[in-house]
Design a protein around this nucleic acid. Structure first.
Length: 500
RNA sequence: GACCCAGUAGCUCAGUCGGUAGAGCAACGGCCUUUUAAGCCGGCGGUCGCAGGUUCGAUUCCUGCCUGGGUCACCA
């Protein structure tokens, strides 16, 4: 009963034999460095027919091989791109050609020194004069055959690409661009915040009481403390403690962890940007958020994006609409005058999945999601949210008991940001969290906890504050035109692969 | 969590209206000193995702499960 893959095992065996052959000829197949001075792409771009035979030294992975007995062509791939090598026995030496080159495989990493020339078929190439191995490949790579940048056997299986991301980047180097852009986006976020006087901070990921959002957590255990800890679902409460402590502008690029469903816009660990500023309100933050997103888009030279099959302009002014204005328009009814029972009846009329326990805010939210969200294609700040679903936001300044100062930013029918005029009245805050706790008691697993530490901090005096949370992965999706969060996360969460 | 689709060689795929499978690439041997999806010749490589059921016989039909993708629900 053998579960060996004979074909694969045989290929690997041959590679080991070649590795041994290289070692036996006195060459270290895994040396320590190589004096690389040139990149493939630069060599091609800077080629000058008048200064033929320019000396270059390049290093990279062998991605194609055409052996013709005593001379061969291969393509070398480095970070910048690909370049063809011409390796002639009489020029690299009979020993190197027979003992080293003949034992090289697709996927090996080599270093080459030689001169630039143009082949008969007019491809700028490097004529090798010195060849060395830098690392041996022992496992076959995906099929890398391509012509004019188009793969013939595309390595496109998503499961394989995500599980073996390195193979994805070797076979589909263009996919690296998304992650270069991701880095640019995050760097631009930092740059905007830093230059506006925000301090970047780091707050605990392991927390005794999780809070700051409505979500189910991951639970873990600390042996020495002998207590259960949670992986944070948000960093909000800690950042507010810093505002209380006198840091007036803070931000954190935080990995959050939520024990919920996974789909094309949710990964169990994801990156959020939260920033808080003392003495401003949610409306100030609205303008700041718009500026932040537009600045990032400009940095990427993105003006119009295609997202969720919508074409969206990011340079025009973002719209600002109140939730009720949108609801009344979409429904043709006066949703703003409905009470809880009225909303309940209307939700039933719309055939929404609701249950009798839902409060005013939850019903309003359900109706909003159904009627309005699908219409929010152009960037739109939606403000005036129900208090019942916003336990950390300050009540509206006009005295309306059911509404808080909060906005969410929607682009392409997807939520990108969530912000409040932060609640800074500790008495009100305790009541709000206590009513959340009651929801937990009747089975709402996502309702928030009473965090006495947080309330105690607020009792020491918290300035009026504006706070914003932005889904970084989603921003990357938007700006790079990706429709799956897995395509903007290097190593997305996957179920453990069964033993084969 | 619900529904739909997919899983065949290392990779990309075909195929079998039920009689245990083919191709290209890769890999292996041979020829080839400007090729480029190099070419030519030769020989390999698979318990057809897993487990049951029906059947004389299952990779194919049925059921369950696993993994992934997609849609929906919840959330960011």
């Amino acid at each position: 009963m053998s579960t060996d893959n004979k074909s694969l095992k045989r290929i690997i065996d041959f590679r080991h034999e070649k590795l041994d052959a290289i070692k036996n000829s006195g060459i270290n197949p895994f040396p320590y460095s190589f004096d690389r001075t040139d990149y493939a792409d630069d060599v091609i771009k800077s080629y000058d027919p008048d200064s033929d035979k320019k000396q270059v030294s390049i290093a990279g992975r062998i991605v194609s091989m055409r052996k013709m007995g005593k001379a061969s062509f291969t393509h070398l791939q480095d970070e910048s791109g690909k370049i063809q090598l011409y390796i002639k026995r009489d020029d690299v030496g009979v020993d190197v050609y027979n003992n080293l080159f003949k034992n090289l495989d697709l996927g090996d990493i080599i270093g080459v020194t030689g001169y630039v020339f143009v082949t008969r078929t007019e491809e700028i190439s490097v004529h090798a004069e010195f060849l060395t191995i830098l690392s041996k490949n022992l496992r076959p790579l995906p099929n890398l055959k391509e012509k004019d940048g188009v793969a013939f056997n595309e390595y496109g299986d998503k499961e394989l690409r995500y599980r073996h991301r390195y193979l994805d980047f070797i076979a589909n180097p263009q996919n690296k661009i998304i992650f270069e852009q991701r880095a640019t986006i995050i760097s631009a976020m930092r740059s905007v915040l830093d230059s506006n006087g925000f301090l970047e901070v780091e707050t605990p990921i392991l927390q005794q009481i999780y809070g700051g959002a409505s979500a189910r957590p991951f639970k873990t255990f600390h042996n020495t403390l002998d207590e259960s800890l949670y992986l944070r679902i948000a960093d909000e409460l800690y950042l507010k403690k810093l505002i209380i402590g006198g840091f007036e502008k803070v931000y954190e690029l935080a990995k959050n962890f939520r024990n919920e469903g996974m789909d094309r816009s949710h990964n169990p660990e994801y990156t959020s940007l939260e920033f808080y500023q003392a003495y401003v309100d949610v409306y100030y933050m609205m303008d700041f958020t718009e500026m932040l997103i537009k600045t990032i888009a400009q940095k990427l030279n993105v003006d119009t994006v295609e997202f969720n099959s919508f074409k969206i302009s990011l340079s025009k002014p973002f719209e600002k609409k109140s939730m009720f204005e949108l609801l009344n328009n979409a429904s043709g009814k006066s949703v703003d005058t409905m009470d809880r029972l009225g909303l309940y009846e209307y939700a039933k009329e719309l055939k929404l999945e609701i249950d009798k326990k839902m409060n005013y805010g939850q019903l309003l939210d359900a109706i909003f999601e159904h009627l309005v969200e699908p219409t929010l294609i152009n960037p739109t700040f939606v403000y005036d949210y129900p208090k019942a679903i916003s336990p950390l936001a300050k009540g509206k300044r006009d005295g309306n008991q059911d509404i808080v100062e909060r906005f969410e930013l929607f682009i392409g029918c997807t939520e990108f940001a969530n912000a409040f005029s932060e609640l800074n009245d500790p008495i009100d805050q305790r009541q709000r969290l206590e009513s959340q706790a009651k929801l937990r008691e009747i089975g709402d697993e996502e309702a928030q906890n009473v965090d006495n530490d947080f309330i105690e901090a607020m009792e020491c005096g918290m300035p009026p504050t504006g706070g914003v949370g932005i889904g970084v992965d989603r921003i990357v999706m938007l700006l790079t035109g990706q429709n799956s969060i897995k395509d903007v996360i290097l190593f997305p969460a996957m179920r453990t692969e069964k033993e084969k």
